[in-house]
Structures are given as structure tokens and as C-alpha cells.
Amino acid sequence: MTSGDLFLQQLINGLNLGAMYSLLALGFTLVYGIMELINFSHFNVFMVGAFIALGVLKLMGMDGQTVILSGLPLIGVILVTFVVTMFATGMIGVGIERVLLRPLRAVTGPAAMILTIGVSYILFNIILIGVGGDTRNFANPLPSITWAFGGANLRLRDVLIWFIAIVLMLGLTYFVQYTKLGKGMRATAQDPEAARMMGVEVDSVVGLSFFIGSALAGASGLIFGLYYNYAKVDMGFSAGLRAFTAAVLGGIGNVPGAMLGGVLIGLIESSSSQLIGQAWADVIIFSILVIVLVFRPAGLLGRQAPNKS
């Protein structure tokens, strides 16, 4: 491979990572936008999502890389796995909000954020006890179809991951932009008290933001499995931290910002692995976070000053 081909290959890899980080970053940003809460349990909702997906695939007879499907059965299996995983993680998110966070709604200060750290550990230990701490081979029913793309290899898997991420992000954008509930969510994010006085039920908006964010984390966990072909109990930490960085980079609370930030972090990770070495990827990602926080604290697409008159 020439260096140009390598660059192209890293672009493809970076877009896969970017799809994963974007979906995960959206959960941070949605909840932060509504409640100004950094939800650290999101890291491990993502991890639990990967294991739920593993379980769903197993139930359908997929184990390891032995079963390869094509055509309609493949589409069916992928669709069912995504829908079930997303619904399950969405409900986990709703449960966390309803049972644990809602009683703390009136409490000011960092109590709610610290609670989410605790929830994160609980989820971690549930999987540790229930499934174990070793690396699990992720079932992957995708045939290994590869196209030559310039000098790089474009696999069916890459295209599928992009397709799913784009569909989910377009769906979310449509929902937030054009539906009544989505407008209620935006209004609540911009002025919660005024939104309440227009008749927006804050509880349902908060619950909805947790459902959507956690469902996207589930999709992201499944994409992680399909991309890396494994799932492990500690996978949430580094992916979650990078996705959180992506949300801050794009401007936390800003939906297009999270999408952009995720793709940028994915591209930065893959190109720095290529140019400098894998070990330096995190150094570069978090250096960028520090630089952004110093020079543009509201993020790339965030508002630089409150827009009130």
C-alpha cells in the first residue's frame, strides 16, 4: 500500500469509529442539553448494549464467526438485533432516570452526577458477575465482502455501519426538528421554565431524552462488536471517554455538534494511530480536548455566549 492508500484506509476506519462515537456522544449531549447533567452511567449502558446484542445474536443461533448469512436473513438478523438492543438499552436508561435520578431532580449540585458514576459501577459489576471479565468473541454474521476502493479495502461491514449510523442520525434530526415532542425537547433545553409554562411535561421530556440517548448507546455498542469482533466488560471506559470528548468538542448540548465531534474523534484516532502510533492516539485526542476547552470552551458548534435578550 502506498501512503495515499494507507490514508484512505485510515479514513474508512476512522469513519467507522466516528459512527460509533457519534451515536454514543449523542446520548451525553441529549441528556446534558435537557438537564445539564453529565451522565456517566452512559459509558456502561453502551457496554451492556454490546452484551445484550451478543445475547440476541446467540438466541438467533449466531455464535462467533461461524455462521455467515446473506440476503434477507442477514437483513432480518441485523434489523432484529439493532431493534431489540436499542429498545433494551433505552429501557435501561429510562429505568435509571425514573428510579434513581428523578428523586434527585430537586437536589442542586453534583449529587446526580455522582449517582450516575455509581450506576456505572453497578452495571459494570452486573456484567462482571453475570458474564465474566474475559473477552467475548462477538458473533458476526456478515459475509466478508470486500471492494477495492482506490488502493484501500472497503468492506460490507464498513458500509453497513455507516448506513445504520446515518439512518439513526437522520431519524434523530427529524424527530428533534419536526415532531411535537422533539420541539418540546428543544424548548425545554433552551428554557425549561418557559417550556413548562407552555404546557410541556418535563418528566416525559427527560424520560424521552434518556430513552433516545441510551438506545443510541445500544446501537453504538452493537457497532463496536461488529467492528472489533469482541465485547468485554471494560470496553465502556475508553470508548465512553472518547465519545464524551466528542460531545464536548462539538459543543455539549448541541446535537449536530455531537455528530461532528464523534466523526472528528474517530478520524483523529485512526490517523494518529497511522501517523504516530496507536499508543499516541489517546494523547492526541485528549490534548485536543484540552485545547478546545481552553480556547473554545463552548465547543466547535456550541453557543459562545448565552443568547438571551
Binding site: R186, Q190, A195
Partner: peptide, 17 residues
């Protein structure tokens, strides 16, 4: 207290939420 990043029409819609 308009919703500052929504359009005028969206603000009117919010009144009829």
C-alpha cells in the same frame, strides 16, 4: 422568554403545545 434558537413560527407552535 422566547425559545431563542427556535424560529418565530416554532415559538408560536409552542404556545399551542
Amino acid at each position: 422568554r422566547l425559545f431563542p434558537r427556535m424560529t418565530v413560527y416554532e415559538n408560536l407552535e409552542m404556545g399551542a403545545y
